[in-house]
Design a protein around this nucleic acid. Sequence first.
DNA 1: CTCGAACCTCACGTGAACGTAAAGGTAAGA
DNA 2: TCTTACCTTTACGTTCACGTGAGGTTCGAG
Lengths: 165, 165
Amino acid sequence: MPHQATSPTPPEPRLLYISEVAQRTGLTQRTLRYYEEIGLLDPPQRMEGGFRLYSEDDIQRITRIVELKRLLGFSLLEIKELVQAEELREQLRDEFKRESDPTARRETLERAIQTVEFQLDKVNRRLDQMLALRSKLDARLARLRGRMAELDGIEEPQMNADERR
Amino acid sequence: MPHQATSPTPPEPRLLYISEVAQRTGLTQRTLRYYEEIGLLDPPQRMEGGFRLYSEDDIQRITRIVELKRLLGFSLLEIKELVQAEELREQLRDEFKRESDPTARRETLERAIQTVEFQLDKVNRRLDQMLALRSKLDARLARLRGRMAELDGIEEPQMNADERR
DNA sequence: CTCGAACCTCACGTGAACGTAAAGGTAAGA
DNA sequence: TCTTACCTTTACGTTCACGTGAGGTTCGAG
């Protein structure tokens, strides 16, 4: 395992080799390089010799990407759009902090809000459809359970079930 | 457009050519054949000459597959597992109808319930994760909106906001 | 019976998302 | 300095999910 730079104390942000990042994120090294290649991840730091060095921030972003991919099942292109909106938002936030003119602040804030709304909208659409699907499955299950109860002879004194579809 | 067989009355279940099915489902003919090829759809009826004829039931199943794919973003293999559970359930239901022995009926019913529970479980897991994601986005948006209100000078007499993260 | 539109089966092509060497440079402990 | 495990790029291979002809057959109206 590689060394720890100059200081022995861990509080300073550690930089990770690609192998460690792969371990922690569950991706392969190839995948990490690939994501960088297609512009989904922006290039991490490098050592003098060319080794990639990932910051905690980088890992955060990678983790988010993995989540989005798993959750939404989007293509990397779609993920890219979502994440770029995200990056834009962060950039805007910084811009916002450095900005003092209130009109400009309002401006950047507005754009930031719109990007989040964009993401939220995508997620919500998907969510609605999934909720509908679950309702269907729930209803189906309830019907089956009803029949089962019917078969079991109705322990609790219920009306003699004659409700068929 | 092809003919209507013997009877002119529509109440009898119409069978559709692949082009019509493609239209109604939004899939291409190639995709329909491909799904059949990989065992995701079981082969539809054929005319004497070999033309595929799809029943309303077939269309139902295709529609479900399209939904699952869009919604969950699963691979066709995963979809296949889910749908096969579904088919099993239907088969069990028929079996159930023909069965008279109550013990056997209970048995098949139990298995049917389990398959639906299996599907429901998959959907629910996904749903939970998506809800969590939405919460995160909601919170983020709320924070941004808060800052915006702060910037706008607080129309409604609120406390002088000094809550900074 | 004829004809054009629609269907059939190969079978090769394609884009996305990586996998997998090959050939060579680098890091850091001994 | 040597060693060896880890990294680099380059580049071809692979799987999934179809697209796209080619070449031939079938349908059904006229």
